[in-house]
Computed example of a mutant assay.
Amino acid sequence: MKRGTEIAGAKVLITGAGSGIGRLMALEAAARDAAEIIIWDLSDERGEAVRAEVEAAGTTARTFALNVGDADQVAAMAELTGPIDVLINCAGIVTGKKLLEVDEAAVRRVYDVNTFALYWTTRAFLPGMIERDRGSVVTIASAAGLTGVARQTDYSASKWAAVGFTESLRGELRADGSRVNTLAVCPFYINTGMFKGVQTKFPRLLPILEENDVSTRVLDAVESGREQLVMPSLVRWVPGVRLLPTRAFDRVMDFLGVNQTMDHFTGRTGKDRLHRSPSGDVPVAVARH
């Protein structure tokens, strides 16, 4: 039973659409002749800028400024938005700090946006999808949602929860015989400003993903009815490493460079923190999410 949702003619809502891959997915949906694109972003200015781009491409768009981690705001904006066909939960934040370095407010903010927002947005729009027996709920999670990552305890745990949320929802919908689809997206590093010009420790095996490629593949997956999308494909085997004895697991993670800090990527604390490519002119970050 096909559960994919055609973007052409669909009403697509994207949270965190004011920047990054959220913005690119909005533009890609416009290129695929979506009927309307709803832009939810914390920044009204960013949202309006993307709305202008979408409408310049010939597609109707609306923008709403809100905090998706606030259940009341989500409920109010959902009333104004009305029924949708595709919900893409793209909004997300990361502290990049160790457990003892992050304060309570920051941790709660991570979970509000990365995890609890999934409940509020999905509960708002899922009933309409179920009633029409069509639609897609997409969660942009992370490769960190497949295996725990040191120095990002709050982020990793929130993304594990995001993947678990999506998989559990899929089980509920299947049990009810619903054609509404769920898609969990787990990308490795994406070539955003933070990772510009940076490579992973093993660039051929774990390349930095290009933003346009990620946005295109997500919408392809929505249309084909896929239920999980892991990028690059090698990363899908990482959870299997957890079946190894603990010490062997730790050694594999250390070899891959999973448990490093954000400094290894940005280079903001000195070039000595960066691995170097053979040519010496391209920073090579240790692979970690």
Rank of each mutant, 00 (worst) to 15 (best):
V241R: 02
Q260W: 11
F116K: 01
A78T: 05
A78L: 00
T115Y: 14
A144T: 13
N114W: 10
V163M: 08
M262F: 07
G18K: 05
C186D: 02
D70Y: 06
I93D: 07
L80I: 00
W237E: 04
R151V: 08
M1Y: 13
S43D: 03
A8Y: 09
A91R: 05
W40V: 01
R268I: 03
L234V: 15
V94A: 14
V222I: 10
W120Q: 03
H275V: 11
T5S: 08
V107L: 14
R179G: 00
A8S: 15
A8F: 04
A56V: 00
T63E: 10
L183K: 09
I37V: 15
T81Q: 02
G9C: 06
T122S: 01
G280K: 06
L173M: 00
A141D: 04
L80P: 00
E131K: 15
V163Y: 09
I84D: 02
V235L: 03
M1L: 09
L173S: 09
N114E: 06
V68T: 12
L205C: 08
T147G: 02
I93A: 04
S277V: 03
E210W: 00
E79F: 05
T5N: 08
M1G: 15
G257S: 05
L244E: 00
G280M: 07
G171P: 00
E211W: 01
A117R: 10
D154A: 15
R32M: 05
S215A: 15
V50I: 12
V138C: 07
F195E: 02
P187H: 02
S178A: 11
N259D: 15
D220N: 14
L229F: 01
T269G: 01
R109T: 13
A76Y: 06
E28K: 14
F265M: 07
A141P: 12
G225L: 14
A52N: 11
A91S: 09
R247H: 12
S168T: 15
L209S: 08
N259P: 07
